[in-house]
Amino acid sequence: MKRPADASGPVARAAQRRRPRLAVWKFSSCDGCQLTLLDCEDELLALADRLEVAYFLEASRAVVEGPYDLSLVEGSITTPDELERIQEVRRQSRTVIAIGACATAGGIQSLRNVLDVDELARTVYAEPSYLDVLATATPIAEHVKVDFELRGCPITKEQLLEAIGAFLHGRRPAFGTVSVCQECKRRGTVCVMVSGGVPCLGPVTQAGCGALCPAYGRGCYGCFGPAESPNVASLMRWWQDELGVEPAATVRALRTFNAAAPAFADAAAAADESGRPGGEGA
């Protein structure tokens, strides 16, 4: 990294200051989003130069006591123990960034939210009495104040670095909340839904992945959750009426990684009950 020669310059002064402390926390999740941080191979040195990695069990057993300047929180809240732990994380952290579909929408485990958790436990476990779980899986923001959310299942390296860079320099992260379609069009991918009749969640899903799946001829799976003003009911009507998708299949498409995100959950519930995405009358 380039440094000004002048030792009294603003950058040199900043470097002499204590590096901000980073902590990475895991709740109910698969670790995939944390791994994205380790995946930043080319940038790890620059990151370590700017941040003190104080708590990151995935990478190091060394633990530095809080408080922390920046906490990255992965996972959703699914147990009574996690309910308490997230409060402690918030108390110890100046800035909290929730990372990934679990932390921002409940994750795939939020499929339980529309089912009976006791019945599920009895089906899966020989001794369900050992389990101590909540009836629902919920995002971090339902429990504590979250300063910024990174969507995705998993998050992308580019967005993670951009968010950390923005945190370090006190600016707004430069990414929007528009649809995946905008990324498709910018990269020049020809729409798979219009040109091939492939059901795609892109028009109601938030950009961030770079429109990865359509670039390989697949419809968007909705990994980044609902876009800023999603009209899910309209898209599901089109899937059913024009693309011949069965109502049950629209419900399954909406109930994946972001099943509990309100825009997806509501449309799925309406289709589940009436067979029509907007509910009875639609």
């Binding site: 528009v178 379609c181 069009k185 729409c191 800023e228 003003s229 999603p230 309209s234």
Partner: peptide, 14 residues
């Protein structure tokens, strides 16, 4: 129209 429009922006980008 708003009942149907997805706010996806495809129209403007094409």
């Amino acid at each position: 129209v708003a009942e149907r429009c997805l706010n996806c922006a495809n129209c403007t980008l094409v």
